[in-house]
């Protein structure tokens, strides 16, 4: 018996490259790595994003728990600077979606969407936290949205806790839109 691999430590996530997510838990090799199935289910359960939304995308991990969606497929692993859009921070108790993913993929979200009025939306885009007692949905990460040009459009990711809506719009995306 000279199977070296069976004695080696389990493979670890390598922050310098992108690795394709395993389809399901049976195919998981790197401990702790989320599966494609889990990611698709998470968006569906948390925001009601239909699973078929992701049919054309592959999912990748680079950096600890940073999950990316890419519109095609390439070799795995791949050592490049960027691969599609960073959609999610996993490997933590509460997974956190990215502002850019919510803007792109949560237009048809049906769950945990907080629709803001004009002043509330401006406050959110500035990166400011606000009291929002009227929300009686779940606590945790929500999609903040508003109405523009005839339709509801996601603005970004809010964190709703204790009657307060916190804005997680990253510094480089904040804007004063009053």
């Amino acid at each position: 018996m000279t199977d070296a691999d069976s004695n080696a430590d389990p493979p670890e996530n390598d922050g310098q490259q992108f690795d394709r997510l395993p389809a399901t838990a049976d195919e998981r090799v790197v401990p702790g790595r989320p599966t494609r199935e889990e990611v698709v289910q998470w968006w569906d359960q948390r925001f009601g994003v239909p699973p078929e939304t992701w049919d054309g995308h592959t999912f990748w991990e680079k950096g600890n728990g940073k999950i990316w969606a890419f519109a095609a497929d390439v070799v795995s692993p791949i050592a490049v600077e960027g691969l599609g859009l960073r959609i999610l921070r996993a490997r933590q108790e509460h997974w956190k979606p990215s502002t850019n993913a919510v803007q792109r993929f949560c237009r048809d979200a049906t769950e945990n969407v907080v629709v803001l009025d004009g002043d509330e939306a401006a406050c959110f885009a500035r990166g400011d936290d606000q009291e929002l007692p009227r929300w009686d949905g779940d606590w945790g990460y929500v999609v903040a949205a508003h109405e523009i040009a005839g339709d509801v459009e996601p603005i970004g990711v809010g964190l709703y806790l204790h009657g307060e809506l916190r804005s997680t719009v990253p510094k480089g995306r904040r804007e004063d839109l009053e």
Binding site: A71, V74, I78, A79, V80, G82, G84, L85, S98, N100
Partner: peptide, 24 residues
């Protein structure tokens, strides 16, 4: 990312000697 693009691969090479090595 701001424009919501998902088909982009970003590489950091000297274009004069661009290598397909990362692409297998």
């Amino acid at each position: 990312e701001r424009l919501g693009i998902t088909n982009l691969v970003v590489t950091n090479q000297d274009a004069r000697n661009f290598s397909f090595k990362p692409f297998g």
